[in-house]
């Protein structure tokens, strides 16, 4: 299957005991002085363009209300932060944020508890059934979310868990599982088989070898997988929109509802909200870049 092969090829090239990011940081002597400076400044421009939407939302958030929606834009103003106070006190944002965080943490825990042992099994089992199941899991990456989420909707209503955190956690764990398995299987394959073999010669059971030897050595892999599972709760709109109404609403659903209100007074709160979300995420991606790179290049099938 394409994605497995290619991502494996990609990782394979990086396999020299470093993850993709470490290699990416390694400066390969730039060829000629002139062009590399041109390329550098071109990248500065590209980076600024990519950040422009966040910069503009940030400006909208901190401008006084009378200046924020002027056309042409006002450039000199005294920054003020009342939109943030309004966001925190005047809307249900605090509750929604709390809720999203709970769902995110719960889905990280559940998906790692279920996914990590399974991925370890996939990485170490020589039989033919392993790869077949992995490829089948991958097929779900190509399917439209609604193909599984419409039945979720019916089932959650029938079971009385519609609009609850439980339904969201179950849905997120399920939707994320193929990606998680692929990613972690890749990570576990990188660890030499001799590690668990010697642990088992020393008297460990297979499970103990996994818990006491493999898990402690797979920190970066588990962090990467956990981080993507965590972010899913903050990113996934379609699933949350379908399965929630009031109580279990998550950030994307809240943002979309606010944006749909089409009322200029809520726009500034919305700008504050997008800044409050974008800044931490931009900082995390810059500083935890190596985990993102490893996750995107290794799993490479994030849906």
């Amino acid at each position: 299957m394409t994605a497995v092969d290619v991502s494996r090829g990609l990782l394979g090239r990086r396999r020299a005991r470093k993850d993709a990011a470490a290699a990416a940081q390694q400066a390969q002597g730039p060829a000629k002085g002139g062009t590399s400076w041109v390329a550098f400044w071109a990248m500065v421009v590209i980076a600024l363009l990519m950040m422009a939407p966040f910069i503009w939302a940030g400006l909208t958030a901190v401008k006084p209300f009378s200046d924020a929606f002027q056309n042409p834009p006002v450039w000199s103003f005294t920054p003020q932060f009342s939109a943030f106070t309004e966001l925190w006190k005047g809307t249900t944002f605090a509750k929604v944020l709390g809720n999203t965080t709970i769902v995110a943490i719960a889905s990280v825990i559940v998906s790692l508890l279920i996914g990590a042992p399974a991925a370890y099994a996939f990485a170490r089992y020589a039989g033919r059934i392993g790869p077949i199941l992995l490829v089948l899991a991958l097929v779900f990456r190509a399917l439209p979310r609604f193909a599984v989420v419409l039945p979720f909707y019916e089932a959650s209503r029938a079971l009385g868990i519609y609009d609850t955190n439980v339904a969201l956690v179950i849905a997120f764990v399920a939707v994320n599982m193929p990606f998680m398995l692929l990613l972690l299987t890749g990570f576990f394959r990188e660890l030499p088989v001799e590690l668990d073999e010697s642990a088992m010669i020393d008297g460990c059971t297979r499970l103990q070898a996994f818990r006491k030897v493999i898990v402690p050595l797979s920190g970066p892999g588990l962090i990467t997988a956990g981080m993507f599972a965590f972010l899913l709760a903050f990113q996934e709109y379609l699933v949350a929109l379908t399965l929630t109404q009031n109580n279990a609403v998550t950030i994307p659903v809240f943002v979309a509802a606010q944006a749909g209100a089409d009322d200029i007074t809520t726009f500034q709160t919305l700008a504050a909200l997008s800044l409050a979300l974008a800044v931490p995420i931009v900082l995390i991606t810059i500083f935890a870049r190596k985990y993102f790179v490893a996750g995107l290049a290794g799993g490479a099938v994030k849906g």
Binding site: A47, Y237, A259, A278, I281, T285, I286, F292, L296
Partner: peptide, 16 residues
């Protein structure tokens, strides 16, 4: 630069 580029990929689509 790679980190900055990736941020736009990771920020929730709705917000972006």
């Amino acid at each position: 630069f790679l980190g900055i580029l990736l941020a736009t990929y990771v920020v929730p689509t709705v917000v972006g």
